[in-house]
Simulated scan of single mutants.
Amino acid sequence: MPRTVRVMLSGGPDWAEVPAVWDVSSVESEPKVKILCGNAYEHFEFSGSYTHHQGERMPVYRWCRRTYVAE
């Protein structure tokens, strides 16, 4: 099973149900992630900083924008 890196998601609209923790293959290969929330994608980028969450050091990905799903 491929190993993943757990990252902390930060920011974004209050109404969007975005998980606090997300898995990426690596910070280098996935410096940006997009998460489907309803009819839009919430985009996050690696901020260059780290935080501790439940005893684990995690890269922080900050919300940067929203795009809408094309019909």
Rank of each mutant, 00 (worst) to 15 (best):
R57H: 04
V60F: 11
G55A: 15
M58L: 15
F44Q: 03
F46H: 15
H52T: 13
S49W: 00
P31T: 11
S26K: 12
H52F: 13
T51Q: 02
F46P: 07
F46D: 11
R57G: 01
F44K: 06
S29I: 08
V60A: 15
V60G: 09
E28R: 13
A40N: 04
H43C: 14
H43R: 11
R57L: 15
L36T: 01
H52W: 08
S26M: 08
P59K: 04
H53V: 10
V33C: 12
K32V: 11
Y41Q: 01
N39H: 13
E28I: 07
Q54A: 10
Q54T: 01
P31M: 08
E42F: 07
I35F: 01
F46C: 05
L36S: 03
V33A: 07
S47T: 14
E56D: 05
E56V: 14
K32Y: 09
E28H: 05
I35T: 00
S26L: 10
F44A: 00
V27Y: 04
C37W: 00
E28V: 03
V27A: 09
R57M: 12
E30F: 12
I35N: 02
T51W: 00
E42H: 08
P59E: 02
H43D: 02
I35K: 00
V27W: 07
E45Y: 04
Y41E: 00
Y41P: 05
N39G: 10
L36C: 03
S47N: 09
S26Y: 04
Q54S: 06
C37P: 01
V60L: 13
H52K: 10
S26Q: 09
P31L: 15
A40E: 09
S26E: 05
F44L: 04
S29Q: 15
L36A: 14
S47M: 09
C37T: 05
G55M: 10
M58G: 06
V27G: 11
V33F: 08
V33Q: 07
Y50M: 15
H53Q: 02
K32E: 12
C37L: 02
Y50T: 15
N39P: 06
P31D: 04
K32C: 11
V27I: 15
P31A: 05
P31G: 12
S47C: 07
E56Y: 03
N39F: 13
E45A: 09
N39E: 09
S29H: 07
F46V: 07
K34E: 05
S29V: 13
P31S: 09
Q54K: 11
K34F: 06
I35V: 04
S49Y: 06
A40I: 02
S26N: 05
S47P: 10
G48D: 01
Q54I: 01
R57F: 03
R57A: 15
E28S: 06
K34P: 03
S47H: 06
H53N: 03
T51N: 07
I35D: 01
Q54H: 08
L36R: 15
E42A: 14
E28P: 00
S49C: 05
H52Y: 09
V60N: 07
Y50S: 12
Y50C: 11
T51V: 03
E56F: 06
I35R: 02
Q54Y: 09
E30L: 05
G55K: 15
K32S: 11
G55Y: 07
M58I: 04
Y50I: 04
Y41S: 00
S47F: 12
S29N: 14
P31K: 08
V27F: 10
H52Q: 11
Y41W: 10
Q54R: 09
E45H: 08
V60C: 11
L36K: 13
I35Q: 00
R57E: 14
E56H: 11
